[in-house]
Design a protein around this nucleic acid. Structure first.
Lengths: 155, 155
DNA sequence: ATACTTGCAAATGATTTGCCAGTGT
DNA sequence: ACACTGGCAAATCATTTGCAAGTAT
């Protein structure tokens, strides 16, 4: 049973700073690799390897799926990207720092804001000792709206 | 993005009461189906479909993997079983009620005790509004021991 | 120049499905 | 008897890997 060991996330938000980070690590910057960065940093949401290889529906040139997986792997090792499992289906890749919450009733995906994250981590640590991270598996549960909806139906 | 909708767990802890529950739902009790129950209720830990089909290393007769998957699906629909993803690798099946925590550093898997669960749920709800459940994806983070170990290494 | 990368294809692992013969009720 | 279920094989989906040719440094 293993959750992947993850590199410390690099606080990078643009393609060109990501390219610099690659160079610093002695890694090459090929066209295919740059495309993966382009996709991750412009999509604004987690992407599957397949979507990236497909070129985001025409917004970018398509590329080879195998190579996309290999490049995502490189980016994860360096701390520029991470993958999440938001539910069933393929793993989804995004820039490194984000953590997520998913409502199991309505399926809404929320990126946890830095502010609430600190409170959340402290609360969980106090309640059960574990210092949590929601970047590989999200926090899953009922969102406030669905809690209300559920409560109403139960009369 | 979808976390599976889950049937309300049935508070059943023995094979024979599970068999009753199946009958109540109008479902047949075949040899193969009973074997799956036998495996789930005697293993004491979450099992992969493959382990169940393999007969738990000789403790039970082996059976067909495809049928095991179909039966696990039936048991999930009825609320007798659930599957969790504790990390990468195959989904793991267990009796329905349990929720889990995994340490990302040492890999230790803990079943969350009912007592700490209430506090935990309340703490998370207070911190971010979501009422959490850790039965499909576990709570992932650093356990207390590994928090200490990490802190020590950082000097 | 040379080690790292690509693109393509084939391999792998997990899970699902089609089908027909067998069985629980 | 009849619909449900089991066993076996083939299909599917996500991901990984081998290899020969191409490219960044």
């Amino acid at each position: 049973v293993s959750v992947p060991q993850v590199a410390e996330p690099i606080g990078v938000t643009t393609v060109s700073s990501a390219v610099n980070a690659l160079r610093v690590h002695g890694l090459r910057v090929s066209a295919a690799r740059r495309l993966v960065l382009e996709a991750l940093f412009t999509a604004g949401r987690p992407l599957s390897a397949d979507e990236i290889a497909g070129g985001l529906g025409g917004r970018l040139p398509p590329s080879d799926l195998g190579s996309v997986y290999r490049n995502l792997d490189v980016l994860e090792r360096v701390g520029l990207a991470r993958h999440v499992h938001l539910g069933h289906g393929p793993g989804l890749y995004a820039p490194a720092a984000a953590e997520y919450a998913v409502c199991e009733a309505c399926g809404e995906v929320a990126q946890l804001a830095d502010a609430s994250l600190d409170a959340l981590r402290a609360a969980v640590a106090a309640a059960c000792g574990l210092q949590p991270r929601f970047s590989h598996f999200p926090l899953v549960g009922l969102c406030e709206r669905c809690q209300l909806r559920t409560a109403r139906n139960e009369f």
